[in-house]
Design a protein around this nucleic acid. Structure first.
Length: 803
DNA sequence: GGATCTTTACTTTTT
DNA sequence: GTAAAGATCC
């Protein structure tokens, strides 16, 4: 969190920057700390009710501490109480504590709970926030030292992509062959590891654009500096660079942060680790809280290693395990623990509970004939729970992939069962919101080229490609922002008169809005901008079904702006906090991905789609090997441990994969659940895996002769591979050659169709869509075929049959 | 500049 | 099978 939403929201909070490194004063009588301390010699109120381990985690304040907090063991409580304790005992003032989280939500929650603990609002916890928001704050204060101005813009993924596309074009590379998204992903992996362009190992830049990856990265960083912009990765990498190149600045921050706390340490990437290491160098009062068993973000750069290596990195670290679970029933815990015990690379914890509940339901395992029926069965189950008086709010369906949601939504709509989808496109990512924001950005920041470009011709005002290209060329040649270039051009004969007039009007409008920035209330100005630019009108004219909703969103946007002090502070908030409060307070079932469910809990949890290929996901196995499988297993563990009272694991015998129905094999994770705590419900449906309970879906049988398609052969090999032998390739390396899978797929498919021999020019072939034809050119597995009816087409050989 | 056809991907996603 | 993005055509 960067900015508290409220009238006092400001881009900088002005607690004294440096020079306050002297020991903080003792708790002021009647102050927050004193109140929290409570009276007399008794333990302060906030320590009451902590179990011995939690208490140790709170009170071991000095030196490095690793708190291994299993699911539902009171992690957040420990973290917040620890902060309260540090403040209450006068060890540090609130602004001398650095507390980092991963999400804004977590930061908000923490702030909230600390306030509750000390009985009032905590003032001055200016350094409680996400890695990114704290990074931003540090950068804004020292922007000049890394070649930025303090009002730099933060680009989102969309802007990044457009920028990279421009760079790829400028380098005359084939956009098809070297797509911007791939470059973005590559640069992202580098930034995740804290690598600046000069530090990228030469071998890694080779994979992209004939070895020019590194060069493009450098070009991209260069462009960012010209635009006075950073991307999300820079919010981590640039502070590191700052600390390394300016030891004095680093020393100041080291002095400032007397105590450091890190939430969800298992999710930190290398860059975040380096960042923390630098800050903790001189003063190792660092407390990291995490759970290696819940590390599920390896695919976006998280290093479980960070948590596994903690004791090594911070010598003398105290390691405290929180294993007493306050959330789930014994059978659910048993199921989760038994499952996760199949992972090898873990620090090892065993959750337990004291609660003895003879009524506790076993974990239910059930199956359905296909995914359709799965949705139907779960829907029925939920309705029956509802009839028994269970609240829908306390029921969640957690799935591996978001495409699974569709069938549940369809079913629930027919049933009239209220549901809510968590995740999906977020408020600030919607097109109309991004357009509106682009208008605001271009108003506040005339140099924001990406914003300007986004809306020059939205709504359509006849400023086409040609005009924009001209502006671009001028801007690039003279190294000035687009808007400045446009301003110069309207005084020349370069542009056609009509476009010239339009452009002049547009620039005039921006100038006029900009002049009003300081005098008019920003939300009012925002409304004016959208009206005068014709943007609101554009959606009013739009006859499509979602237009009214979009107008509604725009209204909501203006409304939410009122909570901020200025346009600038609002924009800052938006770029870092890409979510808006969801309003839905209706009692409804929650649908979300397993990833989205981390940190949440529900009375009843449904876990559908436990099938090989989907969960564990084939791609995780393909690209991550054993490590990938273990991460999938952790995901299953996260899913199970979300449940307080009831967990239902489900699988379907048939599921549509890429549009084709495929028979599926029950997930290996089902076999890893403990028999004693599981209740296998006989499939009521049409046969299929009727004998599930008896044979426990013996895999060698399932993978028998029935599955002879190449895909299954492959899946089978992978299964063996992933569960047994070592997989040499690291996940990032595998990701780099993401094209590989497709190519491999083609090859496999090909070998089936043509039986291993190549097509020859002149051969007669048949194609499903184009009919008969003769081969004209053979290029590897790509054929150019002259079809009798459809004419000349390029096709993959796997799609034609020899006649 | 807009409509229509074609291509492509299709796990997870925060900041 | 489907949806979105891109390319091509008018």
């Amino acid at each position: 969190m960067v900015l508290p939403a409220g009238p006092n929201a400001r881009p900088f909070d002005d607690d004294p920057l440096f020079g306050d490194a002297a020991p903080p004063p003792a708790p002021r009588p009647g102050g927050i700390a004193a109140r929290a301390l409570g009276g007399g010699g008794r333990d302060p109120a906030y320590l009451e009710g902590l179990n011995p381990e939690q208490r140790r985690a709170v009170e071991t304040v000095d030196g490095p501490v690793l708190v291994l907090a299993g699911a539902g063991t009171g992690k957040t409580r420990v973290l917040t109480t620890r902060i309260a304790h540090i403040i209450a005992t006068g060890r540090a003032a609130p602004h001398q504590i650095l507390a980092v989280t991963f999400t804004n939500k977590a930061a908000r929650e923490m702030r909230h709970r600390i306030s509750a603990l000390v009985g009032g609002t905590v003032e001055g916890m200016g350094w409680l926030g996400t890695f990114h928001s704290i990074g931003t704050k540090i950068l804004r204060r020292n922007a000049e030292l890394v070649g930025l101005k303090s009002d730099f813009t933060i680009l989102d993924t969309d802007d990044q992509l457009r920028l990279m596309k421009q760079i790829i074009q400028a380098e005359n590379l084939d956009e098809k062959r070297w797509p911007a998204r791939q470059l973005a992903a590559l640069i992202d992996t580098w930034k995740n590891r804290g690598l600046t362009p000069d530090k990228v190992p030469a071998s890694e830049g080779r994979g992209f654009a004939n070895g020019r990856g590194q060069e493009l990265y450098a070009a991209y960083q260069d462009r960012l500096k010209v635009l006075n912009a950073v991307d999300f990765g820079d919010l981590l990498v640039e502070p590191i660079r700052l600390f390394r190149t300016h030891p004095d600045v680093l020393a100041d921050y080291q002095r400032r942060f007397r105590y450091m706390l890190v939430d969800e340490y298992q999710d930190t990437n290398v860059a975040q680790y380096l960042w923390l290491r630098l800050l903790a160098q001189s003063n190792p009062n660092i407390c990291c809280v995490g759970d290696d068993d819940q590390s599920i973000y390896g695919w976006r750069g998280a290093e479980v290693d960070n948590i596994l290596r903690f004791e090594h990195d911070f010598p003398g670290a105290a390691v405290i395990r929180l294993e007493r679970n306050y959330r789930s029933t014994a059978p659910i815990l048993a199921a989760a623990s038994h499952l996760i015990a199949h992972n090898e690379g873990r620090l090892g914890k065993t959750l337990f509970t004291d609660r003895r509940d003879p009524e506790a339901a076993l974990v239910t395992v059930a199956s359905s004939w296909d995914s359709n029926e799965e949705a139907r069965a779960i829907g029925d189950e939920i309705e029956s729970l509802q009839r028994k008086g269970h609240k829908l709010d306390e029921i969640a369906i957690l799935m591996r992939a978001s495409f699974q949601m569709r069938e549940f939504e369809d079913r629930f709509v027919t049933l009239g069962l209220p549901y809510r989808v968590v995740g999906g496109p977020r408020f600030y990512e919607r097109m109309e919101i991004r357009d509106a924001l682009a208008y605001f950005r271009a108003t506040v920041q005339p140099a924001d080229d990406l914003a300007f470009e986004r809306i020059v011709n939205t709504p359509k005002r006849g400023l086409g490609e040609a005009t924009i290209k001209l502006c671009h060329d001028t801007a690039r040649a003279r190294r000035i922002p687009l808007m400045a270039a446009a301003a110069d051009l309207i005084d020349t004969e370069e542009i056609k008169p009509k476009a010239r007039a339009t452009l002049r009007d547009l620039l005039g409008a921006f100038a006029h809005w900009r002049a009003d920035l300081d005098t008019r209330p920003h939300h009012e100005l925002a409304e004016t901008i959208l009206d005068e630019s014709g943007y609101t009108e554009m959606w009013r004219q739009d006859r499509s079904a979602d237009a009214p909703g979009r107008l509604e969103n725009l209204k909501e946007l203006i409304r939410s702006m009122q909570d901020f002090e200025s346009m600038t502070s609002f924009l800052e908030h938006v770029s870092l906090v890409m979510d808006a409060e969801s309003d839905a307070n209706q009692d409804a079932v929650t649908l979300m991905t397993l990833h989205g469910a981390k940190g949440l809990e529900f009375d009843t949890v449904f876990l559908p789609g436990w099938e090989e290929g989907l969960f564990p996901h084939q791609r995780s196995l393909d690209e991550g090997g054993r490590a990938g499988l273990e991460e999938e297993r952790r995901l299953a563990y996260v899913g199970l441990t979300r449940a307080r009272k009831r967990a239902y694991v489900w699988f379907a015998s048939n599921r549509r994969v890429h549009g084709m129905w495929q028979t599926s094999v029950p997930s290996r994770f089902l076999d890893e659940l403990p028999e004693d705590h599981v209740n296998v419900r006989e499939s009521g449906g049409a046969g299929g895996y009727g004998g599930y309970g008896a044979s426990r879906f013996d895999r060698s049988d399932s993978f028998g002769s029935r599955y002879t398609t190449p895909g299954w052969e492959r899946a089978r090999e992978r299964t063996r591979d992933a569960s047994g032998g070592p997989r040499p390739m690291s996940a990032p390396a595998a990701r780099l050659r993401s094209g590989g899978a497709t190519i491999e797929g083609e090859l496999v498919a090909k070998s089936v169709v043509d039986g291993g021999s190549d097509f020859t020019v002149g051969a007669r072939v048949f194609h499903q869509k184009f009919g008969n034809g003769s081969v004209a050119v053979v290029d590897g597995n790509k054929l150019t075929v002259d079809f009798d009816k459809a004419g000349r087409k390029k096709v993959l050989d796997s799609f034609v049959e020899r006649l």
